[in-house]
Design a binder for these strands. Structure first.
Lengths: 161, 161
DNA sequence: CCTAAAATCACCCGAAAGTATGACGGAAAA
DNA sequence: TTTTCCGTCATACTTTCGGGTGATTTTAGG
């Protein structure tokens, strides 16, 4: 809650105050109220200044804003250019259908980079025989006979990048 | 802007007012201030009640809830398919740079489809040994060791489709 | 806890791939 | 005309790949 001391408001308050004091002086000079209605007079002063204070506060206090942000969704067309020769998303469904496991997919991926079984074995920290087993299973599941075919088909089916 | 008349606040204000009036009575009974400092006394009352008014206002003003509608951009992907059935052009310059001959390119192309050397030989009506020679030359020129690498690199360099 | 799938490894054997080298004819360039 | 490159083929050899079979260990799920 911040107070914003607007020049206009402060000036207005000062003038009101001054005028009230002036009125007071005049009344004092007249000796009208002081004699028998001092309580009432003081009370009036209190009420007037209370109201003045309230007014001042409401004027000066920056509205306490509880911003409730309602997100309104504005649909903006975003054109996505798809180049089928460019990377498509990997077809996880197809992988599932073919029953290719994580490890087999790794082997297949490395195979696609042109690595030999031995190099793949080195990269995956397993024996050459293990890689052979994996690749054999891959060939079975992809229904191909050679690694080159496997890679070609895998890329065609988007199961590797 | 609504005023929320909390019981507690109103009670507090009433009590303050009552106590002030009581103080006033007491002072009146004492005849201390009224004789020579009436202006000052009235001024104090004014200030006190102004402050009281301000406090009251701040307490009572219900925070203004401002519902701000923020437009949130939601991008709706509009897929624009690029005709890539005629994909990237084959990089003939690169083929020239690498010194790959027509025949070698044919072999490379067939190799990329996953054919074995024997199958390639059958397709091109040449002997297996010829295909081997070609592929060996291809590997040299592409600076690779295996057919899978050759295919990978060839596709990367756009020298085959 | 138990079971099924996944991952690991091993051995054998044949097939395919790749290396090295050489040869020969034809076409194009120097 | 000679040289060079291309395409063809061959032999011999090594390496890698892939199939078949079997086994053990991990991992994850019911």
């Amino acid at each position: 809650m911040t107070l914003r001391a607007t020049h206009k408001e402060i000036l207005l308050y000062g003038i009101s105050l001054a005028m009230l004091l002036l009125l007071l002086k005049w009344l004092e000079a007249r000796f009208i109220i002081f004699n028998y209605r001092l309580d009432f007079f003081i009370g009036s002063i209190a009420i007037v200044f209370t109201v003045l204070g309230i007014w001042l506060a409401l004027k000066l206090v920056k509205p306490k804003i509880e911003t409730r942000i309602v997100e309104k969704e504005v649909y903006v067309e975003k054109k996505v250019y798809i180049d089928s020769s460019a990377p498509k998303e990997i077809n996880r469904e197809e992988i599932g259908n073919l029953g290719i496991s994580k490890r087999e997919l790794e082997v297949l991926q490395l195979m696609a980079t042109g690595l030999s079984n031995e190099e793949i074995a080195g990269k995956l920290f397993v024996s050459l025989n293990t890689v052979k087993t994996h690749s054999s299973n891959i060939f079975m599941k992809l229904d191909v006979k050679r690694r080159t075919q496997a890679v070609e088909k895998a890329k065609r089916l988007n199961i590797i990048s």
